[in-house]
Design a protein around this nucleic acid. Structure first.
Lengths: 147, 147
DNA sequence: TATATTCCCTACCAATTTAATAGGAATAAT
DNA sequence: ATTATTCCTATTAAATTGGTAGGGAATATA
C-alpha cells in the first residue's frame, strides 16, 4: 500500500523527540517511549539503524541515554527515513535492476524512478529543526485560541 | 518498505499496454499478460479496480476484451495508482485521523501529509501518453545505436 | 441453437513481512 | 556490589502479498 512501515514512522518520532530535548543532554529511551506512547522494546530495534547511520550517539550504563549526533538543523528526514527503511524506492528494480530481465526496457521503470527522486527531494528539504519549529508554533497558537 | 505493491505496478503496466494498443480496438487480457510477462490470473484481480474507477471498458464473450475508457492523454498515473492501491498515504492517519488519538497534535503527521501531496502531484503530472511517447523514443534511439 | 471465446467472481493458500515480546549480556555510575 | 541503562539474539502471532483454482455468465459466430 505504499505505506511507510512503523520503523520509519516511529523512528522519525524518536528522532524528533531527541531534537526537542536536544539541550537536555542524554535522553532515556524509556522516556521517549513514554512521551511518544510507543513500545520501548520495539524502539530498541530502531536504535542500531540510527546509530550506524551516524544520526545518534549513545552512552551505556547508569546515567546513559541517547542524543543526536548533529544539531537538529543538520539532520534531514531523508537521512532518518532511509536509515530506517533502507530505501524509499516504489519498486525494487530501481536499486537492483538485476532482479528483472525487463529492467532495461521496462515502460514503467522510469516512472517509479522519477517518483522516488521526488520523494527523496521532499524529505531532504525537511530538517528536524524545521519540524520542531512548526510544531512549537502550532502548540502555541492552539493554546492562544483555547483561552 | 514504502514499496508500491504489485497491484499498482502490474496494473500500471496493464494500462500502458492498453495505451500502446489504443488504436487497435479491444485488447485481450491474455495478450497483455503474455507481452508483459505477468500472470493472467493475477491481472484479472486488478481489472475490477480499474473498471470501477472508470479507467477501462470491457466487452465480454468472443471478440471481447478491454480498452481505455478515455484517451491516453486524459489518464494520469495518479488515477491509475490510486484506483489500484486505494491510497498513497505514507501513514494511515492522514486519511483516517480517528485511528490515532494523537493525530491532532502529532509532530510527524504534517510530514507524512506533505509527502503524500508531493507524491500525488508527481503522479498527476504524468499521463499515459507522456509515458508511451518517452518509451517509443527510447526504443527508437536504442535501435539506431545498435546498427 | 450450439459452441467457442472471453470476461467475471469467489474461495483458498503459501510465503513473506510486520510489529512486536522475552531474556539476558555488556557497560557505566554510585 | 548494586543499580541503571544500552545492546543483542531468538521467537512469534498477525497481517499482507501475490498468487492459483475452478467455475459461471455473457456474447459473437457458425
Amino acid at each position: 500500500m505504499m505505506r511507510l512501515s512503523t520503523k520509519g514512522r516511529y523512528g522519525t518520532r524518536l528522532m524528533l523527540d531527541l531534537a526537542i530535548h536536544y539541550d537536555n543532554g542524554l535522553v532515556l529511551l524509556k522516556d521517549i517511549a513514554k512521551r511518544q506512547e510507543l513500545s520501548e522494546g520495539y524502539l530498541e530495534h530502531l536504535v542500531p539503524l540510527l546509530k550506524s547511520a551516524g544520526l545518534i550517539i549513545s552512552s551505556r550504563g547508569a546515567r546513559g541515554g541517547y542524543k543526536l549526533a548533529k544539531t537538529p538543523s543538520e539532520i534531514t528526514i531523508k537521512e532518518i527515513v532511509t536509515a530506517l527503511e533502507g530505501t524509499l524506492s516504489p519498486s525494487e528494480c530501481i536499486n537492483t535492476p538485476s532482479i528483472c530481465q525487463r529492467a532495461d526496457f521496462c515502460i514503467t521503470r522510469d516512472v517509479w524512478k522519477e517518483l522516488e527522486e521526488k520523494i527523496l527531494q521532499t524529505l531532504e528539504s525537511m530538517t528536524l529543526k524545521d519540524i520542531v519549529d512548526k510544531y512549537e508554533d502550532k502548540i502555541k497558537n492552539s493554546v492562544t485560541y483555547n483561552i
